[in-house]
Structure formats: C-alpha cells, structure tokens
C-alpha cells in the first residue's frame, strides 16, 4: 500500500486512473444496460450448423449466403427474431408460393431453428430473439394491453384477435392461443403485411402487456356462452336466420298442423 501511495504522484497515475474509470463504467454499462442479444451467445459451431441447414432448406429461394433471389428476399439484417418467428410458427420453409404464407406443422427442432437464427444473425445485426421476461404474459397488465391492442392491432386482427381480412386474399391471422414469444417477434419484425412496431413505438413492457391481454382472452371462459367464432354481428345474424327462424318455424308447423 505504501508503494502504491508513494507512486500516486507518478505522471502515469492520472492516465491509469482514467483507464480504470473507463473500464469500470464500460463493464457496468455492459452488465446493466438493457440487452436482447441472446443470439450474441451463439457459438461458432451453432453458426456453422445453421449455415448447413440454411443451405439445405432455405437457399433455393433465399440464395447462397441469404442474398435473396427472385423467389425470396435477402435475409441479412432480418435478425434472429424473424427466423425464430417464421420457422417456429411453421411459416417457413413455405410449401407453395401464394398471396400469403400460412402456418403449417413446424418442420425443425428448436435447436435447429436456433442454429439457423444464429447463422442469419451472424450475417448482419437485426432484432434478436426477445428475452423471456418480456414475452411472459403473466407479468403484464391485460387492461393496458387491451387498450394498446385496440389502438394498434384490432383494426386488422379484430378486437379479440380473431383475425380479419386484408386486400386480395391476404389476411391478418388469428392471434388466439399463440405463444407470447411469437406475438412479440411478430411485432418487432413485421412479417408479411404487418408493420413493424419497434421499441420506440411500443416499449418492451407494453408489448408484454399486449401479450398479457391476448393470453387473458385465451383463458377467459366466455361468460355469454358460445362465441360463434368471436367474429361480430355477421355470425349472430346467420344464427338468428338459420337456427332462430328454423326453430320458430318448426314449432309453428307443429302447432299449425294440430287442429284443435
């Protein structure tokens, strides 16, 4: 200690102290700053595995090195979240071109999807797979999420996420019983016709509230009875005409045929 104290007036001390200060600040920032970079933990092996999977399953449309072809867009910069969403919900690889890619059975294991995601993320930075903390609906506020949902999402996806029509055969899919991770990823990546809702538009906490709202609807027990698809007055009118009128006419025929 004495040796250290003796050198405190050394000309290099001030520079050293500055260096230490910068290191501590940098380390603290790295430790404390909000981060989503789970893909950053990808190992070189994982990236290599992902590249092989990509070449075997995706490159026919997206091109070698994911640079894109006439059939599929370039992927550098779409981020791991986009890969996780598209492959994890069974949208990619697509079986046939069409106005919109629908969901199918998921073809890959979560490890394989993570490998492809790591590979795509290694090409250029993009939205990472969200932290589990922000995709867990049970930690959010469903009432606030409901307001956000009605303002930002309901015009396409319907007030309770039953889905709705877009132009020329495209559609906003149903959001019922969808994993919180995929809802979150869809918001940050904006797949197909959907716009991107980045963290400035809707903060991660608010995104979690939206997940909370959708999961609350999934769990609610329909106090009114059968919901007829939660599609609004059209199925209600159809029900009134087919079943309501049908039953009434049935009784009328029965009563009319009974002569007193």
């Amino acid at each position: 200690m004495n040796a250290l104290a003796a050198r405190r007036r050394h000309p290099a001390a001030i520079a050293l102290l500055l260096l230490v200060g910068l290191l501590v600040t940098g380390a603290a920032y790295a430790a404390l700053a909000p981060k989503q970079a789970s893909a950053a933990t990808a190992t070189a092996d994982q990236v290599e595995h992902g590249k092989k999977l990509f070449l075997a399953n995706c490159a026919s449309c997206h091109g070698i090195g994911a640079v894109g072809t006439d059939e599929g867009p370039a992927l550098p910069g779409v981020g791991a979240a986009s890969v996780d969403f598209q492959m994890g919900t069974g949208r990619m690889p697509m079986t046939a071109p069409g106005v919109q890619v629908g969901t199918k059975k998921v073809k890959f294991s979560q490890d394989e999807i993570a490998a492809v995601a790591a590979y795509i993320a290694s090409l250029a930075p993009g939205p990472a797979i969200p932290d589990g903390e922000f995709t867990d609906g049970s930690k959010g506020d469903p009432a606030k999420g409901g307001e956000l949902f009605r303002v930002n999402c309901a015009m396409c996806h319907n007030a309770v996420g039953s889905g709705g029509a877009l132009t020329r055969g495209k559609y906003a899919p149903s959001l019922r019983h969808v994993d919180g991770k995929y809802i979150y990823e869809a918001m940050v990546t904006g797949p197909q016709s959907m716009p991107v809702f980045n963290d400035t538009n809707i903060t991660p906490d608010s995104k979690r509230d939206i997940v909370a709202y959708l999961h609350a609807i999934d769990k609610s027990e329909n106090p009114g009875g059968l919901t007829l698809g939660s599609l609004g007055p059209v199925p209600e009118g159809l029900f009134a005409w087919v079943f309501g009128l049908g039953i009434m006419v049935g009784f009328a025929v029965w009563l009319g045929s009974k002569s007193a």
Partner: peptide, 26 residues
C-alpha cells in the same frame, strides 16, 4: 347457450381504434 354482442370483448369506445369485423346487426 349462445352469446351475443360481447361488449366486454370490444372494449370502450374511443374514436381512434376500429376493430376488424365491424358490422351492424344483420
């Protein structure tokens, strides 16, 4: 047995949002 017009699902009115599937009664 069958629910009709689940007003709780639509949320309160606010002039900015609109829900997909907005129709009048038949």
């Amino acid at each position: 047995v069958v629910g009709i017009n689940p007003i709780w699902a639509y949320g309160p009115y606010d002039p900015s949002p609109v829900t997909a599937g907005s129709q009048p009664d038949w």
